[in-house]
Simulated assay, not measured.
Amino acid sequence: MKILLEEIMELAILSGEVLLKNGAETYRVEETMAHVAKACGAAKVESFVIPTGVFLTVNDDSGRSITTMRRVKNRTINLDRIAKVNELSRRLVDRRIDRKDAYGILKHIARERTGFSLAPSMIAAGFVGGGTAVLQNAGVYETLGAFAAAASVRYLAHIVSRLHGVQFTFEFLGGMVAALVGVILHDMLPAIGRDAVIIGGIMPLVPGVAITNAIRDVIAGDLLSGLSRGLEAALTSVAVAMGVVIVLATHSW
């Protein structure tokens, strides 16, 4: 029974770790770990999740328990992985898959490379920026400028991730890049509205998911996680704003 309990713990906490690393809500991480552990035979499960760590205690029928935690340093938004882990937990609960197979699949989900390559990502970011400019009643040139600014920000994200840079460094530099594109285009063609280009360029940096999760956690009573996510979103907004303000202030001189 000792080995079984340890295997249950490893599977459950790995599922929580993958979810938290990829942007899942606090309640989803806690519930998924509990469902996975109980589906594997745990008698009692207690979990506690904060944005930087996962804590889990699993008990068996004899009363023996194991407690462990996982530190989560790097977080991103990957809804594909979240969906795959959720589906895996449902299959486990419905007895459509056994524990060992589930662990192998979960390890694969944690390691696999998902998402799009650089070029499609830049194009998608460009459409986000261009679409935002259109919503501001921007003209053709402003829309194209916002497309270029947002695509440039996405390229910068790729460079910073390759260098293992800090998240807030990228957001600060991203704000600067978006502002630089807007300022340069406006200086070259004064008819191009600088503000529309900058706003469209920084749109991929807006922490919409973080804000949504923060509000969701606070409403659900997960105050520590909600406040932490809210503070992270606020710092992201400040970093982007500082990058834009520095460029605009320097240009005005």
Rank of each mutant, 00 (worst) to 15 (best):
G139Q: 11
V153E: 00
S152G: 12
L135T: 15
V134D: 05
G129C: 11
A125Q: 01
A157S: 08
G145A: 11
L118F: 10
I192G: 03
M122I: 03
P190Q: 09
V166P: 14
A133G: 06
N137G: 06
V128W: 05
G174C: 11
S117H: 12
F147M: 05
V166Y: 14
A138P: 07
F170M: 02
L180E: 05
L135W: 07
A124W: 07
V153F: 00
H164I: 02
F170Q: 04
D195A: 12
Y141V: 09
L144G: 08
L185M: 15
R154A: 11
T143I: 03
L144W: 05
V160T: 11
I123Q: 11
F168Y: 14
A119C: 00
L163W: 09
G130R: 01
A157N: 06
G130N: 04
L144A: 12
G174H: 12
T114G: 11
S117G: 14
G131Q: 13
A125E: 00
E142H: 12
E171W: 10
Y155H: 08
G182Y: 02
S152P: 11
E142P: 13
A178L: 03
G145H: 09
G129H: 07
R194D: 05
G175I: 12
V166Q: 15
V153L: 01
L144P: 01
S117F: 06
L173K: 09
G126L: 09
S121Y: 00
T114I: 09
P190D: 05
D195K: 09
E142N: 14
A110V: 00
G145W: 05
G193A: 11
E142C: 12
R162Q: 14
I184V: 15
E112H: 10
I123C: 11
I192A: 07
A178R: 02
E142A: 15
A157L: 03
L180Y: 01
P120Q: 04
V134I: 15
V128M: 08
G174N: 13
L185H: 06
G115M: 02
D187V: 12
V177M: 08
R113W: 13
V140Q: 03
S117C: 01
A179Y: 03
V160N: 12
F116D: 04
T169S: 12
T143L: 00
F172A: 06
T132Y: 15
G126P: 09
F147G: 01
V183H: 01
H108D: 15
F168D: 03
A138L: 06
E171T: 13
A124P: 06
M176H: 07
V166A: 15
G175D: 10
P120L: 01
F170P: 00
L180V: 15
L156F: 07
Q136E: 00
T114W: 12
G174P: 11
M188Y: 14
H164N: 15
L180P: 03
I123D: 09
A133F: 06
L173Q: 08
Y141T: 13
I109K: 01
H164K: 15
Q167A: 03
M122K: 04
R194C: 14
S152D: 11
R162Y: 08
V166N: 15
A124H: 10
I184W: 05
A146T: 07
H158W: 11
L173N: 10
S161Y: 05
I192P: 05
